[in-house]
């Protein structure tokens, strides 16, 4: 009799936890979503920059051509690892694979909880809360408060050069990181080959498509990778591991 009561109260507690985290996870995420859109919207609408709606849509569609697949695939991929409550944290805080997941694993190891159990889920959730607070603190202090000061002690001509080459200095590293972490040599070859053809053959031949180069490369790479994929079973399992 008493054990039944314990079970019912505990499942009621878990249901309450589920309700609270789902409701407030969603509310806070929607708030972050609205606030994060409000800033650029303010500039576009009220800063008198003469920006047309068409310009915004074209830019967004070009970005969507590249990232739309990931919008959908990433939440599906991370759900089994994160669980519903942590989903609302993770996609707001960012840097999931390199910061949040390691934090969750370390915490589970620290208290000997297994992933997939309730203990594991709670441990991961608390770990992500801890990681979030550290990250928020560091960002606000070192970037928000001290960032401009740090930048201002650097000579202006260095900043100007840095601004000019910041993008190539990110992109080289990111490509190497992607190639190593995705471990898809075939797709990598197809992507680089397609990019070279688009940039050095297609665009010089038809300069009008220069603005679409990245979108064309992405779509072509996706289609070619799909049709040229290794169909042997042993290969596909090797690539997944």
């Amino acid at each position: 009799m008493s054990s039944t009561t314990v079970i019912t109260t505990s499942s009621a507690d878990l249901a309450a936890f589920d309700r609270t985290t789902s409701r407030w996870g969603r509310i806070t995420m929607i708030a972050a979503l609205v606030l994060s859109l409000a800033a650029p919207l303010y500039l576009v609408l009220f800063a008198d920059l003469g920006i047309t709606q068409t310009q915004v849509w074209i830019a967004f569609l070009a970005v969507a051509a590249v990232f739309s697949v990931l919008w959908v695939v990433e939440p599906i991929t991370y759900y089994p690892i994160l669980g519903p409550a942590a989903m609302y944290q993770a996609f707001m805080i960012g840097n999931i694979a390199n910061k949040l997941l390691p934090s969750a694993l370390v915490a589970q190891a620290a208290i000997g909880a297994k992933a997939g159990t309730k203990r594991g889920e709670f441990s991961a959730l608390m770990a992500i809360c801890g990681a979030a607070m550290v990250h928020v603190f560091f960002m606000l202090v070192f970037v928000g408060l001290l960032g401009s000061t740090l930048v201002s002690i650097v000579p202006t001509e260095v900043i100007d050069v840095a601004r000019l080459y910041i993008f190539p200095s990110i992109i080289g590293a990111v490509i190497v990181q992607l190639i190593v972490s995705l471990k898809q040599p075939r797709v990598t070859m197809i992507a680089v080959g397609t990019a070279v053809v688009v940039f050095f053959v297609l665009v010089p031949a038809v300069p009008a498509i220069a603005n679409l180069a990245t979108g064309i490369t992405v779509v072509t790479t996706a289609v070619l990778s799909w049709f040229l994929r290794s169909k042997r079973r042993s290969d596909s399992t090797k690539e997944n591991s």
Partner: peptide
Amino acid sequence: IIPAAALLGAFA
């Protein structure tokens, strides 16, 4: 394949 292709295609 498709997400990897999108990422590699974009950054390449």
